[in-house]
Amino acid sequence: MSSPIINTAGRALTPFILMYGAYVTLFGVLSPGGGFPGGMILASGIILIIVTHDTEEIKALASHTEWFDILGAFAFLLVGLSGIFVGGAYLTNLWPDNSFMLILLDIVVALKVFAGTTALFIFFFKLEVVKCSTD
């Protein structure tokens, strides 16, 4: 898929989608939203770029997304463990300000979902198209 219209539209839209994703992630404490929808919106921005600019460089991102994926999961574990180091139980608030951990976990989860969904999309996008008869 490469027509100038689609390319331009994809380039123009992506920054706004990413910004909206960041907004949904960071303001999950104050309004509907949070890490999961935020991460999904962020991923949709990247997916738009991949679909409109079907180039090899972008597909090579797949290996990096997987690494971010682990990083997100690991960060969640570390945030949980930090609760123990401040004297509480696993996953206790580590800061006197209550919403600190929520925002931190939101960012971690958003990173995780963003990287995971992108990796998923790239996997299915790279599959060759096979013609198959229906049953």
Binding site: G28, G34, S99
Partner: peptide, 19 residues
């Protein structure tokens, strides 16, 4: 820590589930 109850359940009361 959040006025969004779903958020605070997801990441605080039941954060282990989310984990």
């Amino acid at each position: 820590g959040s006025i969004n109850l779903v958020e605070s359940i997801l990441l605080n009361y039941r954060a282990y589930d989310t984990f």
